[in-house]
Simulated scan of single mutants.
Amino acid sequence: MAVTVRDGPNEQQRPYAFVITDDFRLWVNWWDGSKWNWSAQGAPSGRLIPDSVGVVTMKDDPNAFTRPYVFVIGDDSKLYLNWWDGKAWHCRPGHPARTRHRTPRRSPHHAKRSQRHAAALRLRHHR
C-alpha cells in the first residue's frame, strides 16, 4: 500500500509505502527527500494485523499538509486506523465496537493468504 504525502502546500510530494511484516506488525518506508527511512508502527494494543484494507491521504484545508491514513484489520476482525498528525503516529479502532466487520469477497489468492495468516495466528496462540 502506498501514497504520496506533502508536508506543506509548497513542498514536494514524498512516497510512503506501508507493509505488514511476517510478525503481523505495520511498518512504513518513507522518503525524506534524501534517503529512505523505516518506521515501526506496530499493531493495536494486544492485537496482531493479519490483513490490510488500504491507505489514503487527507488535507484539512488548502494550506494544510497531507496526512496518511492507513486502515488495517486486527486479529479480532475489527477495523483499525493508523495516521500521522504531523508530529506523531496514532492508532485507534476505526468503527464502533457494536458493529460487526464483514469481510468482503476476495480472490482465491487473498483467501489463501488469509488462511495462512489465520493458521500462523493459531500456532502463535497455542505455543
Rank of each mutant, 00 (worst) to 15 (best):
A2S: 09
V3T: 11
V3L: 03
T4A: 07
V5K: 09
R6D: 05
G8Y: 01
P9W: 11
N10E: 14
Q12S: 15
R14Q: 15
R14P: 00
P15G: 00
Y16F: 15
A17S: 08
F18E: 10
F18M: 05
F18S: 09
F18T: 07
F18N: 00
F18C: 08
I20T: 05
T21N: 15
T21V: 10
T21R: 14
D22S: 12
D23M: 08
F24R: 05
R25G: 07
W27P: 00
W27Q: 15
V28H: 03
W30P: 02
D32V: 02
G33F: 02
S34F: 03
S34P: 00
K35M: 05
K35P: 00
K35C: 09
K35G: 09
W36C: 02
N37S: 10
N37M: 03
W38A: 11
A40V: 10
A43V: 08
A43N: 06
A43T: 05
P44E: 12
G46R: 04
G46A: 06
G46Y: 02
L48K: 15
L48S: 13
I49M: 10
I49H: 10
I49L: 14
D51F: 14
D51C: 08
S52E: 12
S52N: 13
S52K: 12
S52L: 11
V53E: 11
V55M: 02
V55W: 09
V55C: 10
V56Y: 06
T57H: 03
D60Y: 09
P62L: 06
N63C: 05
N63F: 05
A64K: 02
A64G: 02
F65W: 06
F65D: 14
F65G: 15
T66P: 01
P68R: 11
Y69W: 07
Y69S: 04
V70C: 07
F71W: 03
F71V: 09
F71S: 01
V72N: 04
V72F: 05
V72M: 01
V72H: 01
G74R: 09
D76V: 11
S77G: 04
K78Q: 09
K78E: 15
L79T: 03
L79V: 14
L81F: 02
N82L: 09
W83V: 06
G86C: 01
A88Q: 14
A88M: 05
A88G: 07
W89Q: 02
W89M: 01
C91N: 10
P93G: 07
G94A: 09
H95A: 15
H95F: 02
P96G: 02
A97N: 14
R98T: 12
R98I: 08
R98P: 03
T99K: 13
R100C: 04
H101W: 13
H101C: 07
H101Q: 12
H101D: 08
T103Q: 14
T103V: 13
P104D: 06
R105L: 15
R105S: 11
R105C: 01
R106H: 12
R106I: 06
R106P: 00
S107F: 10
P108E: 11
H109D: 15
H110V: 04
K112F: 11
R113W: 13
S114C: 03
S114Q: 15
Q115G: 01
Q115L: 09
R116G: 11
R116A: 13
R116F: 03
H117V: 02
A118R: 04
A118C: 00
A118K: 06
A119L: 06
A119W: 00
A120L: 10
R122C: 08
R122Y: 07
R122E: 15
L123K: 14
H125P: 01
R127I: 02
